[in-house]
Design a protein around this nucleic acid. Structure first.
Lengths: 228, 228, 228, 228
DNA sequence: CATGAATGAGAATTCATTCAT
DNA sequence: AATGAATGAATTCTCATTCAT
């Protein structure tokens, strides 16, 4: 049955390699390839969570092959952790450059706006954090990088609260942790739970809560609480 | 891995044997078996999310074999959806029996307590909702059951707000949707993000926020906002 | 976790039973149910072959449940065999009522037409025979029913040939077996191989062979061969 | 069943052992392994049809494991299609090297012999084509490879017919398509339906048609038709 | 006579990862 | 410093069939 088979055309093309190699693009540029993998991995992990993420989709997204992920990152878990660290790094970077206005009320409003906009504009970060919580923080706890830094924002909050307290505008017992957590809760939830919260007002005639309205509401709630 | 494939040792022990047929097994009791599967599935899906859940762990948890999941639920997706519906059914049931006190302030506090305790005591619900949001609400949208009912709590909130407004205690422009969402955000987040929020106060000397304190804070925040 | 689950609505509906029962239709009418199963099975086996046929599709097609196939036919193999027998029974019935015209040439033409039309109008028979040949005649050989009867047509062919020979119209050495086989080959192939024979004249400008033309061609070929 | 799942005994025998790594196995020879899989698959698909074919029998036949079929061919369907293409490639190759004799009558006889012998000697091809027709040509239609080439034989037939016509030996209206189809019908059927055609002359005393006699008959029939 | 409940054994395919150069 | 080849171990799901009343 092996007789006269003459197929010089049929290459040993394993089914996977459908992507054109793009010579000279990412090859021989470790920095760039690493970054490409990290980006693709962030997209994939944030889209599907850790368990749902697929190594081959990541490599395809990065324009390379599976093997390279292992070469540069070791395995799926370590890649996930690298993604998580990168996501937090970006968050911290964004907050580091932020300086709230002098005026306490303005300052608090700006803080809330800043956090809200970050969540709104970085759903991949939100989803990654959800994923990680679903994993009970397994990887964030293993990350020295993440555990060593703290959110710059907590200090901004403290500064604003201090200023407000000193000026007699804010209540004396305001606790930065509670205030920040309140802001984070409200901002995060709006993005993280957008696909399910619609259902409970299904038969209510009211339209869904709009983002801008929600920001105003957050600011009102927090300031109503802080003001003495 | 299929449970029955796992044990090559357990040969086809002829059922005709005089033995009393494994007493305590859930044989010939569809209701019970279905419920057992659903419970096991809820545990598994809430623990690992949809992608991370394993069919064989569910069947093992339910004391049956994989095959039965397919017999009763068709496939993993439909089982997941059944779990989701069951989770919402339980939430709605819990809220249906709740009647807030007459006094508006007491009423609002009770509402907040009720929701907070539900989240705190049903982390599996919280995790399931997170999962579903990670899936962008794919299954909740397919569920007629869920989409048809609305949360009883929204009506309780409206009632309490009305009462408070009539008595001149609450601000006139209070919107039930915003109020409920505020409560849900804060309650949900505390449970859902418990594994990651610790890190940002890492170098702060302050201890983590305690549950009771958080409840009191939620009540204060909401009432500070509502009170005129 | 088993707490307050109150779903009296969720029935033990195994996923399979989606079909409405249609009370009083096929129930309690063994004759009719058996026939319905046989018809559905013929459709299924001829469509998908033995291995590709699905028991549940057959039962659904017959408006009953899997269990009934086993009740009436024992198993898939026996059902297949019953279908095969039924198919041959119908072929034989069709041929039994056929009487070729007196005139040898007319007779032969009529014979060819009859066989051709049977194939053309009963592709399910053709497909069943293909299936059976793919199975190397496993079931036809087990069937006493089929093996006992012979095709009525062979006798018609013999009669027509005899008549033609006696009248000096047909060659003396004409063999009924070869003649019948020639007709069957050409008729069967046209139906059985309709999905693949198109390809080899792909680049030929000629259109596909039409059924009527093929019948005329068959008659010409056979008679050219028989005429002396 | 996956071959490697079958043997719980064969534990992960460390590959690092000093043993010479199973000599004779097809390791690190993609060409050869691909070919082995294709051959085994052709045997399996032609023996059992698409639905009846078993992936694990193929891998076993190729001396490898299931996984490799997926590595090289993606899935069962694509493997089947590759087999189909290979089968046609071989047929076309066989015909390409065939040049009929000058003399029209000899040429036609040779053509018939060539086709007849191919069918007779390649029942796996015949069975594959039957399978594909049972599938209504689903895969052949998807195959660019097959659809692009046409049978070399059709040109040989045209050439012979032309020659015969020019010499006044063959009828003027002879159509290559009809002639080729006639030959194919008769040759194919004899092989494809060998397991069922026996039955209809069951009670006839005549012996089954022998291959050689059938070839002679085919030649006679075709030439009787062509000769003017 | 009929049927709802249950199921063992397989079947295709996926997934992350390592081997070997 | 890369990368093509290979693969073990699951994983979901299907299929015909039997149990039990």
């Amino acid at each position: 049955m092996t007789a006269n088979r003459k197929s010089p055309s049929r290459k040993k093309t394993p089914v996977k390699s459908a992507a054109p190699r793009r010579p000279g693009k990412v090859r021989r540029d470790p920095e760039r390839l690493t970054a490409a993998i990290l980006d693709a991995a962030m997209a994939e992990f944030s889209e599907h969570g850790f368990a749902g993420a697929r190594v081959d989709r990541i490599s395809k997204g990065a324009g390379t092959v599976d093997r390279m992920l292992y070469y540069y990152f070791g395995n799926k878990e370590r890649l996930y952790q690298a993604v998580l660290e990168e996501a937090y790094r970006r968050l911290v970077d964004a907050q580091r450059h932020f300086v709230p206005p002098e005026d306490p009320v303005r300052g608090m409003e700006a803080l809330i706006t800043q956090l809200w906009e970050y969540y709104r504009d970085h759903p991949e970060f939100v989803r990654l954090v959800m994923s990680e919580n679903l994993l009970k923080g397994r990887y964030i706890q293993q990350s020295e990088t993440i555990r060593q830094v703290s959110l710059p924002l907590i200090h901004s909050v403290e500064a604003v609260l201090d200023s407000g307290r000193r000026k007699g505008l804010f209540r004396a017992d305001a606790d930065a942790r509670f205030v920040l957590m309140t802001i984070m809760s409200m901002g995060f939830f709006q993005v993280s739970n957008q696909y399910t919260y619609g259902f409970w007002l299904a038969d209510t005639a009211t339209p869904p809560v709009r983002g801008d309205d929600w920001l105003a509401h957050m600011q009102a709630v927090v300031l109503d609480h802080l003001r003495r």
